[in-house]
Design a protein around this nucleic acid. Structure first.
Length: 676
RNA sequence: UGGCCUAUGGUGUAACUGGCAACACGUCGGUUUUUGGUACCGAAGAGUCUAGGUUCGAGCCCUAGUGGGCCAACCA
């Protein structure tokens, strides 16, 4: 039983190493620490899945901690929304914590720092302090208040807390090193005065701790073993550790910060501030607008928690900057919904179809499968009659034989119903088709088992009986931005790239079984995509969102048909050149087993005959470390010269190339070179 | 005139820690199909940023360069 080694991402490896070292399983504890100043988005899902995923993997607790140290931006509304989103994703936190719960402890520790001479009150303007701070390339200088006495610092800090000062008059700074190469270590601010009510502590405090002073200490208080965050916090790690050193007892878990690359999605922005702007300017209806990349937006759009978790899993965890294609997200929602969504019929762009030989006034209730992917899903009845709606796109008077849908004189199947033959198309004055006539084959009813019903026809159309149809508002979404990287253009604002057609509202005609639906129900409108019931939907006025379309290989083919290959021979399926084949073969030549190597050499000889002299010469300046390639070069030279009936040494540069190989430590190179 | 991080098909992530670069998405082709969906089969596509070095052997280790990212909020 050799179980395959499941590759661990680098964070899991760190945890494994710690477990192999001084940590026990009981020491493990993680946390997800959002600031409650906005809604969570798909980028946060990565952070959530990493920490909560680790919690699930190791059976370790994960805290949900609200990093609420800035009362100016934070609100209870966001706390509630964040909790809802995390639970919806399917994660269970151990404790809900708030940084604000630690304000007293943080204050006490700050006093200790002051007493140790490691913090001081600075009373300059922020401009003056910024001046002294230097730049990334230039060291900072000490400010005039840096060496205040402990007593004075204690006094001033106590009065800051007591509310004696207005905002901006004094701040508390850590005393570290104003010339440090890491800007964050140049006496970072620990406390500022803010005369604002906090959503949890009210008016208890008028000094508030800064992120760096709060975060690591909160991790420590909660005994978080691994504090995971995104890459832009890497420079903060040094300060995180410095602050931790000031309070660490040496007897308990010393938390460590590690950083991973955040998730980026093309055609999407991922900044709370900018998403807020979309909401405030009315570009979208709210944080949960189905076009938003927020968790609540995706949820309303019809995305499932499972699909998002699978997506995050597929994306992986690493340290290099990345941009994920939204197509991957779409793949995962289709994958999930394909297995679970009941199939129904709905016509979104209707044209009337009259079955001229079907008795007027007659109706039939036909059997329809609910989900071919799930045999337990059962069947339902769908009404059929003489007058139906079909999709306008599904009829063309004359079309090529690549068109599988309804055309005059050709047969097509109506899903779950009969085979029909296209007839006359009635048009209005402007030439638009208002009505299509057809005839049906009464013997061909689906599932009847007759020969006629088993007849093979190329196309199958969805339809809905006009008299039974249920009207609904259907919202079709396109990406919010027309540019792949709306945030990444110098001199242009992301607002410049807003896609004006990101929302299209139409009226669809649905089969009557859809009359009874409730918010969140998900269906596949066959051939049209996946749709869910919006929260604004009522019995009187149904509203559906299109979550995502079906994969559509026909849509991709269509444009090609209309303008066949006029762009010149695009990429004439480049035959692999002998040179590239040799390069490929040569690559691993140096460390192949004997037998395989000899075979590869023989192959190289075969291909080398087709090389040009220039190509052979190309090998001569191969990097010394590329032993395999040099080997292949020697073999090529050998075979090439032989085929050309030349002396190898007559080829320019060959002599030096061979000589260098002869002198190499590698036996294979020596051997190959000695042949010349 | 700096520090830190990073570099593998079009995209993302692997490569069991130095031994024939794999998986997924995407793309293209085929089979099946009462969804031009699904499923299944197949193909193309990188030789691992560059230059040196260590090694029998380097995507992996070392050095230098180059490209990209982050760092100068009383934000987090």
């Amino acid at each position: 039983m050799t179980e395959a080694h499941k590759p661990l991402n680098f964070i899991e490896q760190i945890v494994e190493e710690d477990l192999a070292g001084t940590y026990t399983k009981d020491d493990l504890r993680f946390r997800f620490p959002p600031e409650p100043n906005g809604y969570l988005h798909i980028g946060h899902c990565k952070a959530i899945c990493i920490s909560f995923g680790l919690g699930e993997k190791y059976g370790a607790p994960v805290n949900l901690r609200f990093d609420d140290t800035n009362p100016a931006k934070e609100e209870q509304e966001y706390v509630d929304a964040i909790k809802e989103d995390v639970s919806w994703l399917g994660y269970k936190w151990d404790k809900v914590c708030f940084s604000s719960d630690y304000f007293q402890q943080l204050y006490d520790w700050a006093i200790t720092l002051i007493k140790d001479g490691k913090a001081y009150v600075d009373s300059q303007t922020s401009e003056a302090m910024a001046e002294q701070k230097g730049t990334p390339t230039q060291p900072g200088v000490d400010g005039p208040y840096r060496n205040r006495s402990v007593e004075e610092n204690l006094d001033l800090f106590a009065r800051m807390k007591a509310g004696e000062f207005s905002e901006g008059e004094h701040i508390l700074r850590a005393k570290i090193d104003m010339t440090h190469t890491n800007m964050l270590m140049r006496d970072p601010i620990m406390y500022r005065v803010l005369h604002k009510d906090h959503h949890r502590t009210g008016s208890d405090w008028c000094i508030y701790p800064m992120y760096d002073w709060t975060h690591g200490e909160s991790d420590y208080i909660e005994q978080i073993s691994h504090s995971l965050c995104s890459l832009e916090f890497k420079p903060h790690r040094e300060l995180y550790d410095w602050f931790l050193d000031q309070v660490y007892t040496g007897k308990d878990v010393r938390t460590k910060q590690r950083e991973f690359a955040r998730l980026n999605l093309n055609y999407t922005i991922m900044s709370k501030r900018k998403l807020l702007k979309l909401v405030e300017e009315g570009v979208v209806s709210d944080w949960d607008d189905p076009r938003m990349p927020t968790i609540s937006g995706l949820r309303r759009r019809g995305y499932t928690a499972a699909s998002i978790r699978n997506f995050i899993d597929a994306v992986g965890v690493a340290k290099r900057d990345n941009v994920i294609d939204v197509a991957l997200l779409e793949f995962h929602i289709r994958e999930d919904l394909n297995k679970t969504a009941p199939r129904v019929m709905a016509v979104l762009d209707p044209v009337k179809l009259v079955i001229t030989n079907y008795p007027e006034g007659q109706e039939e209730w036909l059997d329809a499968e609910n989900n071919p992917e799930d045999q337990t899903a059962g069947e339902r009845k769908v009404p059929f009659s003489r007058e139906l709606y079909i999709e306008r796109e599904d009829f063309k008077e004359n079309a090529g034989n690549k068109y599988f849908r309804l055309t005059t004189g050709k047969e097509v199947r109506l899903k779950n119903a009969y085979i029909i033959k296209g007839g006359e198309a009635i048009k209005d004055a402007s030439g638009t088709i208002t009505e299509i006539h057809c005839t049906y084959d009464p013997e061909s009813r689906s599932g009847s088992g007759t020969e006629a019903s088993k007849r093979n026809v190329k196309g199958t159309l969805h339809w809905v009986s006009i008299q039974h149809a249920v009207k609904a508002e259907v919202r079709l979404f396109d990406r919010l931005f027309s540019d792949e990287n709306p945030d990444g253009h110098e001199g242009k604002d992301f607002m410049d790239f807003i896609n004006p057609n990101s929302l299209q509202i139409i009226t669809g005609y649905l089969e009557p079984s859809l009359q009874e639906v409730s918010t969140g129900d998900i269906f596949q409108f066959q051939r049209m995509g996946y749709f869910n019931v919006d929260k604004e939907s009522t019995k009187k006025h149904l509203v559906f969102n299109r979550t995502v379309g079906l994969r559509d290989s026909w849509a991709k083919k269509k444009p090609k048909q209309q303008q066949p290959q006029q762009q010149g021979a695009q990429k004439p399926q480049q035959q692999a050149s002998p040179l590239s084949v040799i390069n490929k073969l040569g690559k691993k030549l140096a460390n192949l087993p004997e037998e395989k190597r000899l075979k590869t050499v023989a192959d190289i000889h075969k291909y080398a005959v087709e090389l040009t002299e220039e190509e052979v010469q190309g090998f001569f300046n191969t990097a010394a470390k590329k032993v395999g390639t040099r080997l292949a070069g020697l073999e090529s030279l050998y075979a090439f010269a032989k085929a050309q009936e030349k002396e190898p040494k007559d080829i320019e540069g060959a002599a030096a190339f061979i000589e260098k190989a002869r002198e190499d430590n590698n036996e294979l190179l020596q051997e190959a070179a000695s042949r010349f």
